[in-house]
Computed example of a mutant assay.
Amino acid sequence: MKSSLFAAAALLSTAFAMPSFAALKEGDAVGNFKAQASLAGKSFDFSLADSLKKGPVVVYFYPSAYTGGCNVQAHTFAVNADQFAAAGATIIGVSLDSIARLNDFSKDPEYCAGKFPVASDADGKIAKSFELNVKDGAAGIKDTRGIEINHGFAERTTFVITPDGKVANVIGGLAPAANVEQALVAVKALSAKK
Rank of each mutant, 00 (worst) to 15 (best):
K2G: 15
A7N: 13
S13A: 12
S13P: 00
A15C: 05
M18D: 13
P19L: 04
S20A: 15
F21Q: 14
A23G: 00
A29L: 11
A35K: 08
Q36I: 12
Q36N: 13
A37D: 08
A40H: 09
G41V: 09
K42R: 14
S43V: 08
S43H: 00
F44C: 04
F46P: 05
F46M: 03
L48D: 04
A49V: 05
A49E: 15
S51D: 11
K53T: 12
G55H: 09
G55C: 03
P56I: 05
V57T: 12
V58M: 10
V58G: 06
Y60G: 01
F61D: 06
Y62W: 04
A65E: 06
N71A: 14
N71W: 02
F77V: 12
A78C: 04
V79N: 02
Q83C: 00
F84I: 11
A85Y: 04
A86I: 04
A86L: 02
G88I: 05
T90H: 08
S95K: 06
D97K: 09
D97F: 11
L102C: 08
F105E: 01
D108I: 08
G114D: 03
K115N: 02
F116V: 08
P117Y: 10
D123T: 12
D123S: 13
I126N: 09
K128A: 13
S129R: 07
F130L: 06
N133Q: 12
A138I: 15
A139Q: 13
I141W: 03
I147W: 01
E148Q: 10
A154Y: 01
T157E: 04
T158R: 01
P163K: 13
G165M: 10
G165I: 10
K166E: 02
V167H: 06
N169V: 11
V170L: 10
V170R: 12
I171G: 01
P176L: 10
N179M: 05
L184Q: 08
A186E: 10
K188E: 12
